[in-house]
Amino acid sequence: MPQPHVQYVEAAPGVRLWTERRGDPDASVLLLIMGAQASGLGWPEELCDALAARHQVVRYDHRDTGRSTWSYGKEPYRITDLADDVIAVLDGLGIERAHLVGMSLGGMLAQLVLSDDPDRLLSATLIGTNALSTTPLVHADGTTTAVEDLPGIDQRILEEWARPVEDHGVEAELDRRVRHWRLLHGDRIPFDAEYFRALERRIIEHTGRYDSSGAHGQADYSGMDRTEALAATRVPALVIAAGAEPVFPPPHPQHLAQVLGEDAALVEIAGMGHALPRQVLNPLAEAVLAHTAKA
């Protein structure tokens, strides 16, 4: 497979985003959108290569991650601005329409694009995220659960997020990131600490620094409700359900699929949590490729 092609695109005045493309340039585009504070390199190479068997695969660094512009400290932005960045990536690379795959915050950004710019999408795949909707979950027996009563984030993760991040050198930072991944990973698949340490070491080398701006946790999350637009969407949508998901645990995936309508597909990846260990990469790639083929 040819070497990936790197290109920077202008997302806003003074803001450049690092992008990378791989695969057949004549194939349909599949754009990967990572989660909060996560570089595009958070998408494992094996997964990118598997998806590139049928698509031109694009991944990119959000603002304040990786090699993209770190700007929040001087010019704060809203989370909805990160959804505008998705369109900026497509425009900057000359892409008219694409399949989107979003994980965690990336899944929220994909929902914003799906709602606000559906003509730019061929399909959407949403992983480890919650619905940007106030529509209640309807159970098989006809009873309902309000959105605010759906299960919350695992308390252990909330406690980890509340801990101050101190600079004790790169190896200590790697220890912290691996500890975080252990919590996100879930308890159904054996945790491979060295796999995630190597992943984070590559991200640090790519970024050229090992600190985190914390921008996406500080940014304004208002204006993200898309209840009506998501209910009306006609973009083919796939929701990945992960039984060991600790951030948006079941029935969040089932709720999201309901919000997106009866045509939305729901596929469970056995043992998956809020992470991408080797064990889930093949079934995840198969699910995504089956979905994009139908779309």
Results as ranks from 00 to 15, higher is better:
residue 122 L to S: 00
residue 178 V to E: 05
residue 157 I to H: 15
residue 149 D to K: 08
residue 185 H to R: 02
residue 181 W to D: 05
residue 147 V to L: 06
residue 175 D to W: 11
residue 162 A to D: 11
residue 154 D to Q: 11
residue 107 G to K: 09
residue 100 L to R: 07
residue 115 S to R: 11
residue 139 H to N: 15
residue 112 L to F: 04
residue 168 H to C: 10
residue 176 R to S: 12
residue 146 A to W: 04
residue 145 T to H: 02
residue 156 R to C: 03
residue 140 A to P: 12
residue 113 V to W: 02
residue 135 T to Y: 10
residue 153 I to K: 15
residue 101 V to T: 01
residue 161 W to C: 05
residue 181 W to R: 02
residue 115 S to F: 04
residue 147 V to D: 02
residue 185 H to S: 02
residue 146 A to V: 05
residue 101 V to C: 00
residue 115 S to E: 07
residue 165 V to Q: 11
residue 118 P to R: 13
residue 182 R to W: 03
residue 124 A to L: 01
residue 117 D to R: 15
residue 101 V to A: 00
residue 183 L to N: 01
residue 136 P to G: 13
residue 107 G to Q: 09
residue 132 L to G: 09
residue 174 L to D: 08
residue 100 L to P: 10
residue 167 D to P: 08
residue 106 G to F: 05
residue 150 L to I: 06
residue 134 T to F: 11
residue 115 S to G: 12
residue 110 A to W: 00
residue 149 D to V: 06
residue 101 V to F: 00
residue 136 P to Y: 14
residue 153 I to H: 11
residue 124 A to K: 01
residue 137 L to W: 11
residue 164 P to D: 11
residue 100 L to V: 07
residue 120 R to C: 00
residue 167 D to W: 06
residue 129 T to G: 13
residue 180 H to F: 07
residue 131 A to F: 14
residue 102 G to P: 14
residue 168 H to A: 15
residue 141 D to G: 02
residue 138 V to H: 15
residue 122 L to T: 01
residue 157 I to L: 15
residue 105 L to P: 10
